[in-house]
Simulated assay, not measured.
Amino acid sequence: MATLLEYLPLILFFAVYKLVDIYWATGVLIASSIIQLAYHYFHSGKIATRHWVFFAIALVLGGMTILFQDEHFIMWKATVIYALLSLSLLVSRYFFNKNLVETALLGLLKSVNEKEQGKNAELDISLPKSVCEQLNIMWMLLLAFISVLNLYVAYNFSLDTWVNFKVFGLMGITFGAILVTMARIYKYLPDDN
């Protein structure tokens, strides 16, 4: 259910675009992002910073798309988000000496372990720093590449092609990167996981 909710704005954006047009789709993207925020608030009592950031970007660029009737503003949304993510990895690692990819991976593994073993289960896992560094660089470069690729597709192909790329291409690239990440850390996972 949580995974579906994460992708709900994107799914609705795609469906409404195919049924109506980009401006209605953008309005639905903003509205479904509000619903997503409300769900997170009522479900867990808080809203993660990333949800606020994604919503703010959707609201500003989506609002400009609707106000000025210019789809180029919404086309910039993915570029801004992926560029900010890439920049976050860069700044946190080289200015604050914190590897966000390592933090996210260990948090995810801990969460999976708690669901399988119970709340008080200890997670006996450590990832080599060199592997975490490689993965941080991989994700930083990949996110920067995606931000540029989104603009390339937006300005060199039709609106239909860009929407399909945004929904299926970006999701495919991200899924592929997740598979590479999992393959890279697999041998460091405990045998029972």
Rank of each mutant, 00 (worst) to 15 (best):
F145W: 03
K119M: 11
A121H: 08
R184T: 14
Y186D: 11
I47A: 05
W139Y: 10
I137G: 02
V180I: 14
G27E: 01
V180Y: 09
L123M: 15
V53S: 05
I125W: 03
G176D: 12
Q117W: 10
T181W: 06
F96M: 02
V180H: 07
Y186F: 13
H40T: 00
A58F: 07
I146S: 02
S158H: 13
A78C: 08
E71T: 10
N156A: 14
K18H: 15
N97A: 08
K119E: 15
G169T: 11
G63D: 07
V153R: 06
L141Y: 08
M138Q: 06
L61T: 02
V91R: 01
V16I: 13
S126G: 08
V180W: 11
L37N: 04
I30K: 03
L159W: 08
M182R: 14
L135F: 00
C132K: 05
L8H: 12
N113L: 10
I66H: 06
L37R: 00
M75E: 08
T49W: 00
A48C: 04
R184K: 12
E122D: 14
H40M: 00
S88V: 10
L12E: 09
I35T: 00
S32W: 02
Y94G: 12
P9Q: 07
K115Y: 15
Y152I: 11
V163R: 10
F145R: 08
I74P: 04
G63Y: 02
L12N: 10
A177W: 05
V53L: 03
D191V: 14
M182I: 15
L100S: 11
Y23F: 06
I22N: 12
A48R: 04
L67H: 10
A58T: 08
L151Q: 15
F73G: 01
K129S: 14
Y155H: 12
L37Q: 00
I47N: 03
P9E: 05
C132G: 13
V167C: 11
T65P: 06
I34L: 02
V28L: 06
D70W: 06
N113R: 12
A183N: 11
F73P: 11
S86F: 00
A154R: 15
F55E: 02
I35L: 03
L59G: 06
R184N: 08
I57K: 06
V91A: 04
Y186M: 02
L8M: 14
W52H: 05
L108Q: 14
K98S: 10
G169I: 13
V91P: 07
A25H: 01
L189W: 03
A48T: 00
E6M: 15
D192V: 12
D21N: 12
A2L: 13
E71Q: 09
T181Y: 01
L105P: 01
I35G: 13
S126P: 06
Y41G: 00
D70I: 10
Y82D: 05
F55G: 01
T3W: 01
M171G: 12
I185R: 07
C132Q: 07
L106A: 15
L29S: 07
L127T: 04
L189H: 08
G63H: 05
V91N: 09
L5G: 13
I22F: 10
L37T: 00
V131G: 05
Q69G: 07
N193Q: 11
T103Y: 05
V163P: 02
A31L: 06
K110I: 02
M182A: 14
N156F: 15
D191T: 14
L123S: 13
Q117V: 09
L89K: 01
T3Q: 13
L37V: 00
I74L: 11
L106E: 11
Y17A: 05
